[in-house]
Amino acid sequence: KELVLVLYDYQEKSPRELTVKKGDILTLLNSTNKDWWKIEVNGRQGFVPAAYLKKL
Rank of each mutant, 00 (worst) to 15 (best):
1 K>C: 06
1 K>E: 11
1 K>Q: 14
1 K>I: 13
2 E>N: 10
2 E>V: 09
2 E>I: 12
3 L>R: 12
3 L>H: 11
3 L>V: 12
4 V>R: 00
4 V>I: 07
5 L>W: 06
5 L>M: 13
5 L>H: 04
6 V>C: 07
6 V>I: 04
6 V>A: 08
6 V>N: 00
6 V>M: 03
6 V>E: 00
7 L>I: 09
7 L>K: 06
7 L>F: 02
8 Y>I: 11
8 Y>F: 13
8 Y>K: 11
9 D>F: 05
9 D>I: 01
9 D>P: 06
9 D>C: 03
10 Y>N: 01
10 Y>F: 06
10 Y>P: 01
10 Y>S: 01
10 Y>M: 01
11 Q>D: 11
11 Q>I: 11
12 E>T: 12
12 E>I: 12
12 E>N: 10
13 K>C: 08
13 K>F: 05
13 K>I: 10
13 K>A: 13
13 K>Q: 14
14 S>H: 12
14 S>F: 10
14 S>W: 11
14 S>I: 05
15 P>G: 09
15 P>A: 08
15 P>D: 15
15 P>T: 09
15 P>Q: 10
16 R>N: 14
16 R>T: 13
17 E>I: 03
17 E>S: 06
17 E>P: 10
17 E>L: 04
18 L>D: 01
18 L>Y: 03
18 L>P: 01
18 L>F: 13
18 L>H: 05
20 V>T: 03
20 V>N: 00
21 K>W: 10
21 K>M: 11
22 K>G: 07
22 K>A: 14
22 K>Y: 05
23 G>A: 03
24 D>F: 07
24 D>V: 05
24 D>T: 11
25 I>M: 09
25 I>Q: 05
26 L>W: 12
26 L>S: 09
26 L>V: 11
26 L>F: 09
26 L>K: 02
26 L>Q: 05
26 L>C: 07
26 L>Y: 13
27 T>F: 14
27 T>H: 15
27 T>G: 08
27 T>A: 09
28 L>T: 01
28 L>I: 06
28 L>N: 01
28 L>A: 03
28 L>E: 01
29 L>P: 00
29 L>Y: 05
29 L>M: 10
30 N>V: 09
31 S>D: 14
31 S>P: 06
32 T>C: 07
32 T>E: 15
32 T>F: 12
32 T>N: 12
33 N>T: 07
33 N>Y: 08
33 N>Q: 11
34 K>R: 09
35 D>E: 11
35 D>Q: 15
36 W>Y: 11
36 W>M: 08
36 W>F: 07
36 W>I: 04
36 W>T: 03
36 W>L: 04
36 W>S: 04
37 W>C: 03
38 K>L: 12
38 K>W: 15
38 K>V: 15
38 K>S: 10
38 K>D: 05
39 I>M: 07
39 I>C: 09
40 E>C: 07
40 E>W: 06
40 E>S: 09
40 E>L: 07
40 E>K: 05
41 V>T: 14
41 V>S: 13
41 V>D: 14
41 V>N: 13
42 N>V: 06
42 N>K: 12
42 N>S: 11
43 G>C: 06
43 G>H: 09
43 G>F: 06
43 G>N: 11
43 G>V: 03
44 R>M: 13
44 R>Q: 10
46 G>V: 05
47 F>S: 04
47 F>H: 06
47 F>G: 02
47 F>D: 04
47 F>M: 08
48 V>F: 02
48 V>W: 01
49 P>G: 02
49 P>N: 03
49 P>R: 04
50 A>T: 08
51 A>P: 12
51 A>R: 09
51 A>K: 13
52 Y>M: 09
52 Y>F: 14
52 Y>A: 14
52 Y>N: 15
53 L>M: 07
54 K>R: 11
54 K>T: 09
54 K>M: 13
54 K>S: 14
54 K>P: 00
54 K>V: 12
54 K>L: 15
55 K>I: 14
55 K>L: 14
55 K>V: 11
56 L>K: 04
